[in-house]
């Protein structure tokens, strides 16, 4: 059920609601990833494999550019306080804050107040706050702040179009995050598991689950054997797990369908819905084993490209650039003069 307010949603509000949810979700994922990596993820030498985070976020070249080194000690600050890194916690806090300020007339005072306090705390982070023994504590706090935010949103956001764009943002971000995680971790771990006769490093594989908050849910399925395909299958195709790809594609589908219930939006939404239907079908039509055999990396890349196209299509549908007649004419006149 969705309410249509007498005034249709401002395009800028739609855009900011979507990005507010995306950045919040990204922040929660990053905090979890940092936490899990510190505790569980080890490279062949048994050291914390911080560089895997660079790979997941495709940040290797930016990191090089800023630090001119592959020194792993710089990776944690790079993801916590580095303002030149748009996906550090501090940068994300800044983004979240600006988007939330823009939609402040729409969201509840409770939602704004919580966000105001925790984003400011993050922006005031000092380097000492992420010394290694503090990192886990910091990440736990950030993760919980994000979860509190989502709880307040669930409990107080009015269910009009603004809510739908918020939900779209959240589901799109989760879809993107889960495919990145699977893609990178699978390929980091693959060489070990493929070696004939070698045991799967259980800790490493379960850390993939933990990075997606999926470990205990996965356990409840009581899989007979723990195989990479089992884990990939769970994260991609399990309809009961809130962060799986299939759950989030379903959410996107449902949300766009709700948006389309308004007569004026039906035709806007149909090309978007087709795109989602194609994605969902591709996932339903193959098992995890088939996906792996045919090429997990290619499939993950394809999904990410599709998601990006979907995001762009949503943008050009709901917040298009309109050049009014007068302005267009003035521009033409100017060009002629030049």
């Amino acid at each position: 059920m969705i309410i249509f307010s007498p005034t249709p949603l401002l395009s800028r509000y739609a855009e900011c609601m979507m990005w507010l949810a995306r950045y919040m979700e990204r922040m929660e994922n990053l905090a979890r990833l940092l936490e899990v990596t510190e505790t569980f993820v080890r490279n062949a030498e048994g050291q914390t494999a911080w560089d895997s985070i660079l790979a997941i976020n495709s940040d290797e070249s930016l990191f090089q550019q800023i630090h001119n080194t592959t020194q792993h000690t710089e990776i944690v600050p790079f993801y916590v306080t580095e303002t030149r890194n748009p996906s550090s916690l501090v940068s994300l806090a800044q983004q979240v804050r600006e988007n939330a300020r823009a939609v402040r007339p729409l969201v509840s005072i409770e939602l704004w107040t919580q966000l105001n306090v925790f984003s400011r705390n993050l922006l005031n982070l000092k380097n000492g706050d992420m010394a290694e023994h503090n990192l886990a504590e910091l990440c736990t706090r950030v993760r919980q702040d994000c979860q509190t935010h989502f709880g307040i949103a669930e409990g107080t956001l009015y269910r009009d179009q603004a809510w739908l764009f918020y939900r779209l943002g959240k589901a799109l971000e989760r879809s993107d995050q889960i495919t990145r995680l699977i893609d990178i971790r699978y390929h980091m771990l693959l060489p070990q598991s493929e070696a004939p006769g070698s045991d799967i490093d259980l800790t490493q594989w379960t850390s993939v689950l933990r990075s997606a908050a999926a470990y205990h849910a996965f356990r409840r399925l009581r899989p007979v054997t723990l195989t990479p395909a089992n884990i990939v299958g769970f994260l991609l195709k399990n309809d009961g797990f809130p962060r799986s790809l299939s759950t989030n594609l379903r959410q996107i589908d449902e949300t766009l369908t709700l948006l389309a219930t308004h007569d004026n939006l039906r035709q806007f939404c149909s090309p978007l819905l087709e795109c989602v239907a194609e994605l969902r079908a591709s996932l339903q039509d193959q098992t995890a084993e088939e996906i792996i055999i045919r090429g997990l990396h290619d499939y993950m890349s394809w999904i990410q490209t599709q998601l990006m196209d979907l995001q762009n299509a949503i943008a050009s549908t709901f917040w298009p650039v309109i050049i009014p007649q007068e302005a267009a004419l003035t521009k033409m006149a100017e060009q002629e003069q030049n």
Binding site: T7, P8, L10, S11, A14, N264, W319, I322, P324
Partner: peptide, 25 residues
């Protein structure tokens, strides 16, 4: 009532419109 910025509004045929997800209003 919506809080708009200049970029949310435009003028066409001397009438003012705001950009919404359902088109100009």
């Amino acid at each position: 009532a919506p809080l708009v910025e200049g970029r949310d509004l435009f003028v066409e045929n001397h009438k003012v419109f705001m950009r919404t997800v359902m088109g100009p209003r």
